[in-house]
């Protein structure tokens, strides 16, 4: 078994008396899509927060690419190659699509304490940004102000931003939320094309997409990992079937 890209060791997080993350341990291997599913309120987003560094766990460790990053800030983890998307679209609305992505390129190519040269004229940044936009099928929308894009386009843009960071691990928090059927299809195809290149931790409600994409699935209930297994194992697990997955979703 290869060295895991991401390893969570006994993460625990309490809000007041409520334990939202309860002794969670799991791994994401390089090139693997590991999906985390669970009912609403299971603590999926809280888990993502702790991995990305926007929340600090009360106990436990986050190990990324062999390094203990539990005490690292969110931006520092991002620089180390941990890219996250948000459940609620998170872009710079006043920037063009290209500039949104160029910002991410800029973050990994040299110092940003450069004060005089216009950033929008830096060919190196723009080329890489354009390539990332094309990678998600937004090449033709590069000059559009991000705030005026459609919801689906914004989600694609977020992915382009994440890819432009040249991350090692993608943390995707419900990337399909709010997308229509056509957009979903396009995004699923996109995600499939990304596997192998990145490790992906995917939190998603759309079971169809999860079963189509994931190598392994963990089921989170009340902050605990109930079971981790392959798609087949999860599908056939009787408790998961009855407790969480509706029969119709099995079809």
């Amino acid at each position: 078994m290869p060295e895991p890209l991401l390893e969570l060791r006994g993460l625990r997080k309490r809000f007041g008396g409520l334990t939202v993350t309860d002794d969670v341990s799991l791994t994401v291997l390089p090139g693997e899509i590991h999906a985390v599913i669970g009912p609403n309120g299971a603590g999926k987003t809280t888990l993502i927060h702790q991995i990305s560094g926007t929340l600090r766990p009360d106990e436990g460790e986050v190990v990324f690419a062999g390094q203990r990053v539990t005490d690292w800030s969110f931006p520092r983890r991002a620089r180390a190659g941990l890219a996250r998307s948000f459940q609620i679209t998170c872009i710079v609305p006043g920037f063009t699509a290209l500039e949104n992505v160029a910002l991410a390129v800029q973050a990994r190519s040299g110092s940003s304490f450069r004060f005089f040269r216009p950033a929008h004229l830096e060919a190196r940044l723009n080329e890489a940004a354009r390539a990332a936009l094309e990678g998600v099928g937004l090449g033709h929308r590069a000059g559009v102000v991000a705030g005026s894009m459609s919801h689906g386009e914004k989600r694609q843009l977020e992915l382009a931003v994440a890819l432009a960071m040249e991350p090692r691990l993608l943390l995707l928090d419900e990337p399909l939320a709010g997308a229509g059927p056509e957009e979903t299809e396009r995004l699923v195809a996109l995600l499939r094309s990304l596997r192998q290149r990145y490790g992906i931790l995917l939190v998603e409600h759309d079971m169809g997409a999860v079963f189509a994409l994931a190598d392994r699935v963990s089921v989170l209930v009340y902050g605990r990992v109930v079971i981790t297994g392959t798609v087949e194992e999860i599908r056939s697990h009787p408790e998961v079937r009855s407790a969480y997955l509706g029969e119709d979703e099995m079809a």
């Binding site: 991002a78 710079v92 910002l103 931003v161």
Partner: peptide, 11 residues
């Protein structure tokens, strides 16, 4: 405009 976004890419 969006501090979270800036942080998410590493700033």
């Amino acid at each position: 405009e969006n501090a979270l976004r800036a942080q998410a890419v590493g700033f």
